[in-house]
C-alpha cells in the first residue's frame, strides 16, 4: 500500500482518548466550521429528539454557529466542519489543533475536500474569471482537506454525515468508549434494504467501492452513490472501473465521478488507472 492509501484509511486513534472522570464529569466539546456549507453542523442540531439531552451530557463550550459566547480552548473533543480554502481557515485550524486533545473531521469537506476540492482537478480557465484580489486573510489557498495541514484523530465521513453517527459518536465518548468506524461498502446496507441494484440498471453507482455507514441513503432515494464517504480500505477500484466501462462509461467520466467527492483521497494507483484517459480534465 502506498502512503496515500494510508491517509485514506480509517485513522488510528490517538494515544489518549479523554474520558469523563469524577473530577471532570463532562467532556469539553467544541464545534467549528471552516469553509463549508454549515450542513455538518446542522446535522448535529437535526438530532431534534436528542439534542437537548446531548447538551446536558457534554459541555458544549464552543459552537459559534449557534452560540455568542465561546470558550475556545482546553477542548477534549473538537469537531471541525469544512475545508481549508483561505488563509483564515488555515490559521483557525492550526490554532484549534493546539487547543484540543482529539480532533474530529466532521463531514466530507474536512475529510476529503468534497466538491469544493474538485477545483484542484479542473482547468484554471474554468474559474479564472471568478478570481479577484482580496484583502489579507481571505485570500485563496488551494482547497484542501483538513489533514493536509494537521493531524486528524477520527473522521465522520459523508456529505452530509449521517446525523445518527454523530449522535452515536458522542454517546460513545461519554461512555468512555472509542467510536466505531465503518469499512463495509455501501452495497452491504443497500442489499439489506432490498433496493434494486442501480448498477444493474446501468447507473454509474459507486456503492461497491464506497465506505458504508450511511444506510445507503442515496440508493434508498433512487439515486446512485457518488462516493461521498470515500473508498473502503480494500476497495477494488480496477474492477469498479472495468465494470463501469462495460456499462458504457468512458474512463474520463468514471475518473471525474470518482474525483468529485473524494478526489484528493484517491490512492496513487487509482490515478494510474486513469492515465489512459485524456489526462486533461
Amino acid at each position: 500500500m502506498t502512503e496515500q492509501t494510508q491517509v485514506h484509511a480509517a485513522p488510528a486513534g490517538p494515544v489518549f482518548w479523554p474520558k469523563p472522570t469524577d473530577t471532570n464529569p463532562k467532556l469539553r466539546v467544541g464545534f467549528f466550521g471552516l469553509t463549508g456549507c454549515a450542513g455538518c453542523q446542522l446535522s448535529v442540531l437535526f438530532n431534534e429528539d436528542e439534542i437537548l439531552r446531548l447538551v446536558e451530557i457534554i459541555d458544549v463550550t464552543a459552537f459559534p454557529f449557534v452560540r455568542e459566547r465561546n470558550i475556545e480552548r482546553d477542548f477534549d473533543f473538537l469537531f471541525v466542519e469544512g475545508l481549508v480554502a483561505s488563509r483564515n481557515d488555515l490559521e483557525t485550524l492550526q490554532k484549534l489543533r493546539e487547543r484540543t486533545k482529539v480532533l474530529v473531521a466532521l463531514g466530507a469537506c474536512a475529510h476529503t475536500g468534497c466538491v469544493p476540492a474538485y477545483r484542484n482537478f479542473t482547468l484554471k480557465e474554468n474559474y479564472e474569471h471568478l478570481l479577484y484580489v482580496k484583502d489579507r486573510g481571505i485570500e485563496d489557498i488551494n482547497p484542501s482537506p483538513v489533514d493536509d495541514y494537521v493531524k486528524i484523530d477520527h473522521t465522520i465521513p459523508g456529505c452530509p454525515p449521517d446525523k445518527r453517527e454523530i449522535l452515536s459518536f458522542i454517546t460513545d465518548i461519554v461512555g468512555g468508549n472509542k467510536p466505531k468506524t465503518f469499512n463495509n461498502p455501501v452495497c452491504i446496507e443497500c442489499r439489506r434494504n432490498n433496493n434494486a441494484c442501480l448498477l444493474e440498471s446501468g447507473k454509474p453507482c459507486l456503492g461497491p467501492v464506497t465506505r458504508g455507514g450511511c444506510n445507503a441513503v442515496c440508493v434508498n432515494g433512487g439515486f446512485e452513490c457518488w462516493g461521498c464517504r470515500g473508498l473502503t480500505d480494500d476497495a477494488n477500484v480496477p474492477a469498479m472501473v472495468k465494470l463501469l466501462e462495460e456499462k458504457g462509461y468512458s474512463k474520463e467520466f468514471i475518473r471525474d465521478r470518482m474525483r468529485m467527492f473524494a478526489g484528493l483521497k484517491m490512492p496513487a494507483e487509482v490515478e494510474i488507472i486513469f492515465r489512459a484517459a485524456n489526462n486533461k480534465p
Binding site: 471552516l34 469553509t35 475545508l83 481549508v84 480554502a85 483561505s86 483564515n88 481557515d89 466538491v115 469544493p116 474538485y118 477545483r119 479542473t122 482547468l123 474554468n126 474559474y127 479564472e128 471568478l130 482580496k134 484583502d135 486573510g137 481571505i138 485563496d140 489557498i141 482547497p143 471525474d256 480534465p281
Partner: peptide, 17 residues
C-alpha cells in the same frame, strides 16, 4: 460587512460538468 468565508468557486466547478 465582509464575508470571510473561503472562496469555493462553484460556478467554476460546474463549468465542464
Amino acid at each position: 460587512l465582509s464575508s470571510i468565508e473561503g472562496s469555493r468557486y462553484f460556478e467554476g466547478i460546474l463549468k465542464g460538468r
